[in-house]
């Protein structure tokens, strides 16, 4: 059985290339049909916010990469609820369907994977 990876993405889409390079790890796993899930945490939750306008900064729209994830077979997306809440985003619309997890559920999630990659 293929070994699984939990990718924890913690960078805002506005902090340079880091968030995009984290997503590329997920897209590569998908291209090779390997099991990978993503947990958005800390400023990484900002990647999921709808109606952002990266073009105002001549920046590529990361949400296009996010929306490509299901086509690459990456379907398990999670988001840390407390990170949304502490940023005032508890009720916000997200660009993708992501399961909202509390701390205990995140603890459980980490234990389910062979590898954790935090970027």
């Amino acid at each position: 059985m293929a070994k699984s990876v939990l990718l924890i993405s913690r960078q805002a889409p506005w902090a340079g290339i880091a968030a995009a390079e984290a997503l590329d790890i997920a897209l590569a796993a998908g291209a090779f049909d390997l099991p990978l899930s993503i947990l958005f945490m800390d400023d990484g939750v900002l990647q999921l916010l709808d109606q952002q306008q990266p073009l105002a900064l001549q920046q590529k729209d990361l949400s296009a990469n996010l929306q490509a994830l299901p086509m690459f077979g990456i379907e398990q997306l999670y988001v840390a609820q407390h990170c949304l809440t502490e940023r005032g985003l508890a009720e916000s619309t997200l660009v993708m369907t992501a399961e909202r997890l509390d701390d205990q559920q995140i603890q459980q999630l980490i234990r389910e994977y062979d590898y954790v990659v935090t970027l």
Binding site: R10, M41, D42, H82, C83, D103, I106, Q107, I110, R111
Partner: peptide, 8 residues
């Protein structure tokens, strides 16, 4: 802070 929230 984040690690302490998710440490088992």
């Amino acid at each position: 802070k984040s690690c302490l929230r998710v440490v088992s």
